[in-house]
Design a protein around this nucleic acid. Structure first.
Lengths: 165, 165
DNA sequence: GCTGTCACTTGACACCGTGTCAAGCGCTGG
DNA sequence: CCAGCGCTTGACACGGTGTCAAGTGACAGC
């Protein structure tokens, strides 16, 4: 909090006039970034995609390229979520939005009659959500050293083989 | 530290006579659990597997069923790893051991001439390692509510479709 | 039986981060 | 002119980690 106040050019106490707790500040930052960087707009291509496969690709690309932009705040929010209920809730809420996108992509596959027979739509959604998680991105790019481009392409390939008949 | 000391029936200060820092204690606990619960023994079936596919299955089962036993300490270690270099290193070291198992399974597939053509052995190892990560387990079982049995079976199925030709 | 050592105890303290409180200051709009 | 607002300074409480000093009690070796 002291660091942030210094960088903002105000006193530490003034920060508490705006945000009651550290968690609240992190939540507000998260919402602000979503607004400025526009999650919604990123997922537009996935709405206008014609086939289910196209939609799957667009969703992976849109979300996958969004992750690096929110990574720092996401990590902070996840960390504080271990002890702060409201922060955990805020994160879950964000994830629910992203999970809706997964669900829609899976739904589009079903409409095309191209879903993999191995999974129910719910299970397929869970799987897609899991492999697109921030933690997974962290592991593959920061942990394994994959460049972002490769992350996107490989995940597209994985998703197709797992979720498309 | 106070809680742990109380549960151990010694004074908080006595704890510091054994472990210099909280991180050091967590690291020691991790090693102790590995010793007692035996990671090595769990992976024996994977060494004796005949085919590459069998080995892949055995590795997923062995490790996948080990995760719930180490989950609590793993989470604590990961959390403290954000600020403590030694803890992060200890975790990476454990992960390297597990990653070796992934590598060996991929190697076995190659020896059988059954690896998926889409990935190099290194990439296949990274992917297997990522989907078998503790975070992924957390997400699917705790987040999505999958029972352990289903987690194992679904991951086996995923791994085959991704990594086997 | 004495003594040194060792594991532990009690009780204090420093430091850091979060969050709170009170008093004061300066600008601006009515 | 002044009330209100946003901010300031400066203090403090609290909890957690880590440190330090002095003391205690048991046990082993002489």
């Amino acid at each position: 909090m002291a660091d942030i106040a210094r960088r903002a050019g105000i006193s530490r106490q003034a920060l508490y006039l705006h945000f009651a707790t550290r968690a609240e500040l992190l939540i507000a930052v998260t919402h602000h970034i979503d607004e400025v960087k526009g999650v919604q707009e990123r997922l537009v291509p996935s709405h206008t995609a014609r086939s289910g496969i196209e939609r799957l690709d667009a969703h992976i690309k849109g979300w996958g390229n969004y992750i690096p932009e929110i990574y720092a705040i996401a990590k902070a929010l996840l960390a504080v979520g271990d002890t702060d209920e409201a922060a955990a809730e805020a994160w879950d809420e964000r994830m629910a939005a992203m999970s809706e996108g997964c669900k829609a992509a899976i739904g589009a596959l079903k409409r095309d009659n191209t879903p993999a027979p191995e999974h129910s739509p719910d299970e397929a959604t869970d799987i897609l959500w899991a492999i697109l998680s921030v933690r997974n991105w962290e592991q593959l790019t920061m942990g394994c050293g994959w460049p972002q481009e490769r992350y996107i392409e490989t995940l597209k390939s994985l998703a197709r083989r797992i979720l498309v008949a």
